[in-house]
């Protein structure tokens, strides 16, 4: 699936609006100012994604917060924190020392909320674009290999993946880390049509 540069630009803008909204929510929750960079967008096949992510995430299994959605657009969104970034972010949000990277049930709850905020921002943006209501599953924290995360749900091998990578920076604390968001989409056509419409309106 090849997108034209302008289609990618629009997609990036849409995701960026969502991520920006998520950053606002996070800022309301913590004392320090958290900045989320403009995400880098890629459209990949399922075969490509593993290669793309394994460079940054190395060790399997990875931890992810997942939100499934159905409606005009079906698929699921995953938010992955590399372990080091996750423990940093949890420590800042909970005002604790950056300590052991192991996650307990309470920390998992925290991470799930953060993932939920970022995914909601992005998916909210997309659903605004579609001008259609989507139905959502319960946000869930899951662990597994990239393969398992992708096959989870009903997406076919031909599914297209929209990958958005961004960095969060908290200047006061000199902390930064990665956030990786990917949408496992059954069909991209609806999204492209909507982008064209949006483009036409611009």
């Amino acid at each position: 699936m090849n997108l034209t540069p302008s289609q990618l630009d629009i997609l990036q803008e849409i995701i960026n609006i969502g991520v920006g909204r998520a950053a606002n929510v996070l800022n309301e929750m913590i004392a320090a100012h958290i900045r989320l960079q403009v995400p880098a967008i890629k459209v990949l096949s399922r075969l490509d994604i593993k290669q793309e992510l394994s460079a940054r995430l190395r060790l399997e299994p990875i931890s992810s917060v997942r939100l499934g959605f159905t409606g005009t657009l079906s698929g699921n969104a995953h938010l992955v924190f590399p372990t080091d970034s996750a423990s940093k972010l949890v420590a800042i949000l909970t005002d604790e020392e950056i300590g052991t990277p192991d996650l307990d049930a309470v920390k998992i709850g925290t991470l799930t909320e953060v993932g939920n905020i970022v995914i909601n921002g992005a998916i909210g943006s997309i659903s605004n674009l579609l001008k259609q209501q989507l139905r959502y599953s319960m946000p869930a924290y899951i662990e597994g290999s990239i393969e398992q995360l992708l096959t989870n749900g009903s997406s076919s091998i031909n599914a297209t993946i929209l990958l958005a990578q961004t960095r969060f920076t908290i200047d006061q604390l000199q902390v930064e880390g990665d956030i990786i968001l990917f949408f496992n989409l059954g069909s991209f056509d609806i999204l492209l049509t909507s982008i064209e419409q949006y483009y036409g309106e611009c």
């Binding site: 939100l67 959605f69 920390k107 709850g109 909320e113 939920n116 989507l134 946000p139």
Partner: peptide, 8 residues
């Protein structure tokens, strides 16, 4: 989408 308010 559903929203979570975590314990921590």
């Amino acid at each position: 989408p559903p929203t979570i308010f975590s314990a921590q």
